[in-house]
Design a protein around this nucleic acid. Structure first.
Length: 431
DNA sequence: AAATACATCAACCGCTCTGCA
DNA sequence: GTGCAGAGCGGTTGATGTATT
């Protein structure tokens, strides 16, 4: 264990940051931005390596950081995201405004893991411990870098692991997924959104004509425009008996769009209905989110070309669901992100109650709290914008995407998706 | 009150990825 | 195509705080 290469050149400080160091770094970045991190310590007058400065800024000094305890909603979201993403903390953190990957990682390792085990859930597989034991399978979400970092192993268990089942179920759930067909050049490739949109449904995947390999997130997350809340219990009061617990887990037989959609914040069907212009058939329990396995979605599409109409062209069948993308602010106003208020409230309480830390003094905790409250909506707005920019689907969003996305983001899209698409492709080949 | 165990969290380390010359 | 440097990520460690004995 040697000192990091960038620290060899000179004797650099290590360990905890002093208030003076924090202030120097804060002042420097506030005035000049961080620019090249390796030059920050020199410019800021710090005996630290750039890496250390970066870490300190990202994890502690950044003004948009949310401090205080995690809300239950945040924890639930982390669990759901972890089920899909594995130990990709940075991607999980991207879904939690104001939270850092380090913070989430610590929470997971110190707290959530334990809670899940107490509930009888294997934190690695998100399945009941008993079931995991029976299968004798190794944890599907590896914690060892040598085994391909922390990717979810789709060949065994876990949310993505159920994708094969999902694909086989798509006769009853023609759900849109980003797909790419190299044999069909006209197929809209997400990586090249200028190609005209074309609706592709999951059932096309099952024909073997389509590969999901264009669905990719690069340091980002897969996004799906709908969400069924998963049943991870907020409370552990049911005890550790996996059979009696009220928590739900990702079961291979239960995987469906709700599982995939866990990468989106929890959104109730009603919220979708009211907030996103999603028209849910009132008497169709399949859309009611009554539980895992009940969320199969019939032809479910997003008509980006006609955002004002919920009965726009392209719907398939009488029970097709047309929904329209509304403005993000509208979505927020309608509480599509239900944790927001709760988290804010809890965070505010935490702010008021907890001992002031040095950065709080630097920023002025109370002022920051107020500002944070004021900025929360904007922050979430930005986050959603970011999320929307990362989400793209064939046929569903291409035209909307073209209308909404800045040219820069469109150009960035190809690279955004390549890596994880490759991973997914490999995974699918192994199914 | 002291010792010990446990929990939490900030920071470090090594690795991979990416952009550039 | 190759090598280098910077950025970023995830795993791990160690210090500190808290609870328990």
């Amino acid at each position: 264990m040697g000192r990091h290469s960038c620290c060899y050149k000179q004797k650099l400080r290590k360990g905890l940051w002093s208030p003076e160091e924090d202030e120097k770094l804060m002042n420097h970045i506030t005035k000049h931005g961080h620019g090249c991190w390796s030059s920050v310590p020199k410019l800021a007058g710090l005996q630290r390596c750039g890496k250390s400065c970066r870490l300190r800024w990202i994890n502690y000094l950044r003004p948009d950081l949310k401090r205080g305890a995690f809300s239950q909603e945040e924890e639930d979201l982390i669990i759901e995201l972890h089920a899909v993403l594995g130990n990709r903390w940075s991607q999980i953190a991207a879904q939690l405004p104001g939270r850092t990957d380090n913070e989430i990682k610590n929470l997971w390792n110190s707290c959530i893991k334990k809670k899940l085990r107490q509930k009888g859930i294997d934190p690695n597989t998100h399945k009941p411990l008993a079931e995991a034991d029976r299968s004798g399978a190794a944890p599907t979400i590896s914690t060892e870098r040598t085994s391909g970092s922390s990717d979810v192993n789709p060949s065994s268990t876990g949310a993505l692991g159920n994708l094969s089942h999902l694909l086989s179920e798509t006769a009853q759930s023609s759900m849109l997924l980003p797909v790419y067909d190299k044999n069909h050049p006209e197929t809209p490739n997400l990586a090249r959104p200028k190609v005209p949109p074309k609706e592709l449904f999951l059932d096309q995947l099952t024909t073997g004509h389509e590969s999901p390999s264009t669905c990719r997130s690069s340091g980002q997350t897969l996004y799906f425009p709908f969400q069924q809340p998963l049943g991870y219990s907020s409370e552990s009061g049911s005890g550790g008996d996996g059979a009696s617990m009220n928590s739900l887990w990702f079961n291979q037989n239960d995987f469906n769009c709700s599982t995939i959609s866990t990468v989106m914040p929890p959104v109730s069907p009603s919220a979708l209905s009211t907030s996103m212009g999603l028209n849910l058939p009132p008497d169709n329990p399949r859309h009611g989110g009554t539980g895992i396995g009940s969320a199969s979605v019939d032809s479910f599409y997003w008509d980006g070309t006609n955002p004002s109409s919920s009965s726009s062209t392209g719907s398939r069948g009488s029970n097709s669901l047309g929904f329209e993308p509304q403005s993000t602010s509208s979505i927020l106003e309608n509480s599509v992100f239900p944790w927001t208020d709760i988290a804010q409230e809890k965070d505010t309480r935490a702010h008021l109650g907890e001992e002031l830390k040095w950065p709080d003094l630097l920023h002025g905790t109370f002022a920051e709290t107020t500002i944070a409250m004021q900025n929360q909506s904007q922050s979430l707005y930005d986050d959603v914008i970011k999320a929307e920019s990362q989400f793209s689907m064939d046929g569903m969003c291409a035209s909307w995407y073209q209308n909404q996305q800045p040219q820069q983001q469109m150009q960035a899209a190809p690279d955004m998706y390549d890596k994880d698409l490759q991973r997914m492709q490999v995974s699918f080949e192994n199914i």
